[in-house]
């Protein structure tokens, strides 16, 4: 920052660089589509190599295609599942459980975390309980939830909620505690009331760290959902994976795994986009 001050002009860090430089193309001679493609290739080549390997290895006989069918077979099996409606049923069942557990956690736990972070007394009272509960692995509690809540939707949504709660709670508490005291002091000198301080200073200052918690919670939601669907469920992608394995429908099983990955990626991209919009004010990190 020091170097900027003498110049008198602000230096605006930019994220984007001409992609053509990386693809070895002459600048100015490329179309938008070409540049987009070059950029996409630069970012995705490793994934493409892996997918190709998945196709080639079983075809060439490097690996037993019974246990790892080529990607094309897996996609064909997926197409079959899409046509007979199984895919839709399982995906909607999983999405419903995951999103409702996740949403309930966000709505209930973030305010709780804000309160615990703000009031030292409350934090002191809750601290040990939080430590004990968060170190109790959610999957270890799966049998308990099934005992108490049965094998229906309630048990699974509760599992997802429980696993989302800890990353959300801990990150929200940390977020509130990490707010720069100088900003609070500054707000106070301008006569802000405690409520105004909270809504206009603490909450926005804490939001980036809260978003970290939201992203961690979403990853945890997918993980726990699949595991709980593998135990006592009649629908859902976790159920589909384990059922297909038992029934030796191996391509279908792999397609179930791919579907889980796709849902995880989609959720993450959506949250990233929301986060990007909400924290546009942040200085770009890393490779400026």
């Amino acid at each position: 920052m020091d170097s900027l001050e003498t110049s008198g002009l602000p230096l605006i860090p930019r994220r984007s660089r001409p992609l053509s430089r990386y693809a070895g193309l002459k600048p100015g001679t490329t179309t938008v589509l070409q540049r987009w493609l070059a950029g996409w290739l630069r970012r995705s080549w490793l994934v493409l190599v892996l997918l190709s390997l998945w196709e080639i290895a079983p075809q060439a006989g490097w690996i037993d295609s019974t246990f790892l069918p080529p990607l094309s077979d897996v996609l064909a099996a997926g197409w079959g599942l899409a046509l007979n409606g199984q895919l839709y049923d399982n995906v909607t069942a999983s999405l419903f459980r995951m999103l409702s557990g996740f949403a309930i956690a966000v709505v209930l736990i973030i305010p709780l975390g804000l309160a615990i972070g703000r009031y030292a007394r409350l934090g002191e009272a809750c601290n040990q309980l939080i430590e004990v509960l968060r170190n109790t692995a959610p999957l270890a509690l799966l049998p308990v939830f099934i005992l108490l809540l049965g094998i229906g939707e309630v048990a699974k949504v509760t599992m997802v909620f429980y696993s989302c709660a800890w990353p959300l709670l801990l990150n929200t508490i940390a977020a509130v505690k990490q707010v720069d005291p100088l900003l609070i002091k500054s707000g106070r000198t301008m006569g802000a009331t405690p409520v105004q301080l909270f809504t206009r200073v603490i909450l926005p200052a804490a939001s980036p760290t809260i978003f970290v918690g939201i992203r961690l919670a979403s990853a945890s939601a997918v993980l726990v959902l699949v595991a709980s669907e593998m135990v006592g469920a009649k629908a859902g992608l976790g159920y589909m994976i384990i059922y297909d394995q038992y029934s030796f429908l191996i391509p279908q099983m792999y397609f179930g795994i791919l579907a889980i990955t796709a849902i995880g990626l989609l959720l993450n991209y959506t949250l990233e986009a929301i986060e990007g919009r909400a924290t546009r004010w942040k200085a770009p990190q890393g490779n400026v």
Partner: peptide
């Protein structure tokens, strides 16, 4: 935004 401004 502040991060786009110099110290002065």
């Amino acid at each position: 935004y502040p991060h786009e401004l110099s110290g002065g």
